[in-house]
Design a protein around this nucleic acid. Structure first.
Lengths: 164, 164
DNA sequence: CGCGACGTTGATTTGCCTCAACGATTGTGG
DNA sequence: CCACAATCGTTGAGGCAAATCAACGTCGCG
């Protein structure tokens, strides 16, 4: 038994896992440690891994033409953060279909929320869906994820307090 | 050979397809015809199908609390339009992993574009990526997909013409 | 202590929406 | 075959949500 136990528990919650499957996965999986602020992939690199977070919190982000960062997704313990291109090839497909499927559904929901809800409601919905992330993440990253400026998020939060 | 040929051609482009696979799929697949404006799923229903478009053009949309429609995705010939919940269960997973994977990547790109690009650039990017859709779809649907009002899209287009 | 990271606040600006009115085109029933 | 409605696109006026910019407060930490 290794530190990978949470990963295999997670997988078994989704799909039946034979011994052979597990052995195959162990060959392909390794544990990496990062310190705060460190990049999982270096600037400009192509990501060659699928990451399952055992401990801590990752964010996937991109930098636009103006140099502004935009958070694409967060991942804390028990979550996947995905490049989706390389690692999947050659592994038994059924491990990841459900995971990708859920990620896809979540992504579509986010598209929908971004175009149909004002900033205040987006923040409220995020806070309800991910109460742990609200406590854990700095506000400017949440603002980035929600597609608004940190200043405006600050004003939204103030207004929500006044609503009480 | 049936009218389903384009579907099987499409699948064979992605994954090897045994006779048994094909037989299994034929059991589960049927052809449906719709007329213009008709709904694939009726209002309030849960969609129980994955649709592969043989001919024509579908849109997936939702109606928000204010009664406004928002286009989530389009699908023309050779595209899938997905509920992703029901049909997949019980079918060999590998048929659809790549398809979902690509849809997920496209959805993430869209999230990113929506928060990082102004309306004009979103339209330009859409026009470059889907030149056929630009010709084929009415502008108010494109506007809905891009998350802007039809009026504003009209102004964006005018400005793009003036840019020449 | 002093510096950097983070949050807040106010002033100003702007991207986009809403509303309303008006073409242009197509379809349709008398 | 024409009148009429319906659908779609355009244009302009006005308004609002959210961005930007700038300044300041606060906290943790080397």
């Amino acid at each position: 038994m290794s530190d990978l136990a949470p990963l295999f528990d997670h997988l078994r919650n989704h799909v039946p896992l034979t011994e052979a499957d597990e052995a195959l996965l162990r060959e392909r999986v390794g544990i990496r440690r990062y310190r705060k602020g460190q990049f999982v992939t270096q600037h400009g690199d192509v990501c060659r891994h699928e990451s399952f977070v055992l401990q801590g919190c990752l964010q996937q982000f991109f930098t636009d033409a103006d140099g502004n960062d935009h958070v694409v997704m967060f991942a804390t313990e028990g979550w996947w953060i995905a490049d989706l291109e390389s690692f999947l090839n050659g592994t038994p497909a059924r491990f990841f279909r459900l995971i990708i499927q859920r990620a896809y559904i979540a992504s579509q929901r986010r598209v929908v929320e971004n175009v149909s809800m004002p900033a205040k409601e987006r923040y409220q919905a995020f806070a309800e869906r991910y109460p742990l992330l609200i406590q854990r993440l700095p506000q400017y990253r949440i603002a980035s994820y929600l597609g608004m400026s940190r200043e405006f998020l600050s004003k939204v939060r103030k207004q929500l307090l006044e609503d009480l």
